[in-house]
Design a protein around this nucleic acid. Structure first.
Lengths: 183, 183
DNA sequence: GTCTATAACGAGATAGAC
DNA sequence: GTCTATCTCGTTATAGAC
């Protein structure tokens, strides 16, 4: 896995195109045109189209794993808050990668390509729910988890947007942290 | 547009396959195999692959349009509640169709196929936000709108699930309806 | 390391027999 | 109304020259 200029540029262009048109919707032709090289050059640097995607997603997956590992060291309430803030932060920093992983099919996490990601999101979702097994709490956690990811993916804002960050954290806390349930 | 037995079966099989593997991930071959006919038969009944999808989505799109039209007759607070309950109901009844429309790309609503859907979801989102133009309120509305749709799409529950329905409505109201904002 | 050329395949769609 | 056969195109991937 040697790093070269072309190789890096392929990753940049592929990220851009995958983000906008999806993995299936982007061909090697498209990537090659964006880079200004041939398809053969792409496949000289990467074993396959999937290999490009896997490498793009790797750092985000690693950070997600780190976050989840950290959450397991906390008790429920602290883990809930840390999960919310950590996930919002993560998904804002890795918008593109999040969009790549979520390709629109329900079983997107069950593809062999992303094996190992599902247990991470499950643990994260449990943390969002404050480790409660109550159905409503779990549903709420799923709604917020998916909703936050979706909004972050949609936003084409480039640099860190603190206002968006705060809005996402706030809505999640409002929806999930219920100090005095009504009845 | 004459109704026949084969035609209806094509729609059923296509809905099933599109839901599980996405539109791009399903070929005419796959549909033909499921129906037990040839690709040519598919294209005798439908002008194109897209035409199948368009017809599958049509009733859901119509109901969404009806809901949005109804919302415009209400003032902000009533529209907000009606939007939440109406959307949850709609998306639970049309899980499959929702999954078809949302193909995973950010611009899925901007495809020519679904032209006219975007203004509807924009109005719906505004209703979710209580017609507020505050950034945080808009972000929260987007999170809940997308999150609810995502959860409903993921759930493979068949018949009406009142518990899920209540959970979705509740989390949305908790997150969006803020009678006394903190400061 | 990059290219052109092409293989090998699958896609959507069409033609025409039955 | 359904079929087989075929067309055309785009896809991923490979071969081999430079």
């Amino acid at each position: 896995m040697v790093r070269t200029r072309t190789r890096d540029e392929i990753l940049v262009v592929a990220a851009e195109l995958f983000t906008h048109h999806g993995f299936k919707g982007t061909s090697l032709q498209d990537i090659a045109a964006g880079v200004g090289c041939s398809k053969a050059t792409l496949l000289y640097h990467f074993e396959s189209k999937e290999a490009i995607l896997t490498e793009l997603v790797a750092p985000a997956a690693q950070e997600l794993a780190d976050l989840v590992a950290y959450l397991t060291t906390l008790e429920a309430a602290a883990a809930q808050e840390a999960a919310i803030e950590g996930f919002v932060d993560l998904v804002l920093r890795y918008r593109r990668e999040a969009a790549l992983i979520y390709d629109g099919t329900p079983q997107f996490l069950d593809q062999p390509m992303f094996a190992g990601l599902r247990p991470l999101t499950d643990t994260l979702c449990a943390a969002f729910a404050g480790r409660s097994t109550d159905r409503a709490a779990c549903v709420a956690a799923e709604v917020l988890l998916g909703g936050i990811a979706g909004v972050a993916i949609d936003k084409a804002i480039e640099a860190g947007d603190d206002e968006l960050r705060r809005a996402l954290v706030d809505v999640a806390k409002r929806a999930l942290i219920t100090p005095h349930p009504k009845d």
